[in-house]
């Protein structure tokens, strides 16, 4: 009896010490929860969630200030993932912040561009190249489709063009099957 108690006590002490040591030895930098949330967010950096970028929104979610359904680019799936991660109830996207849209990239009409650099300043991910009074161009691979450059352009020369599928990015569709209506008695009667 005594020995059993002693064994349990010894175990409790040893494991407690190990846990304590681990928490000191393997302390993580930064807030791991914010990083986990940020990893789910699409990094479009569009600000539709009401925060100046995905990381600030992640911080706000982690701090309990923001709800999980404010990111339209992340869409329904993003909300579900956040709900999973945080153990919360799923809720549909809050329409106040916008709706989910197919991915598009910005295209500058290079003939109309006056080289004002306003779009470069607006782009959160440095996807626009150009210099003052020079024609600007958007690097399509870098553009996240945040639309932040569209409004500042005084010449109205930026348009959002949906990204078309190519042979390499095309996805097999979810298998769907036509449900055959059950045909019984009427067919026989006709015959």
């Amino acid at each position: 009896m005594i020995s059993a108690l002693l064994v349990m006590l010894g175990l409790a002490l040893a494991l407690g010490a190990a846990l304590g040591a681990a928490s000191v030895l393997f302390r993580t930098q930064g807030d791991p929860l914010v990083d986990k949330i940020d990893a789910i967010l699409p990094q479009t950096q569009c600000g539709q969630c009401g925060y100046p970028g995905c990381k600030p929104y992640a911080t706000a979610i982690a701090g309990g200030e923001a709800d999980i359904n404010q990111c339209p680019p992340g869409g329904d799936e993003g909300v579900r993932k956040l709900a999973d991660l945080l153990g919360r109830e799923y809720k549909p996207l809050n329409a106040e912040h916008g709706v989910e849209k197919p991915k598009a990239v910005a295209v500058i009409d290079e003939a109309t561009c006056i080289g004002c650099t306003l779009c470069i300043q607006a782009c959160p991910v440095d996807a626009i190249v150009g210099a003052a009074k020079q024609m600007h161009t958007i690097v399509a691979d870098l553009c996240t489709g945040c639309e932040l450059c569209v409004a500042p352009c005084p010449a109205d020369c930026i348009a959002m063009v949906p990204v078309a599928d190519t042979v390499d990015t095309w996805k097999w569709r979810y298998p769907v099957f036509e449900l055959k209506p059950v045909t019984h008695a009427p067919a026989k009667e006709a015959a």
Partner: peptide, 9 residues
């Protein structure tokens, strides 16, 4: 794409 966007941001 998101990782590279995050880095650039």
């Amino acid at each position: 794409a998101a990782d590279s966007a995050r880095e650039r941001f």
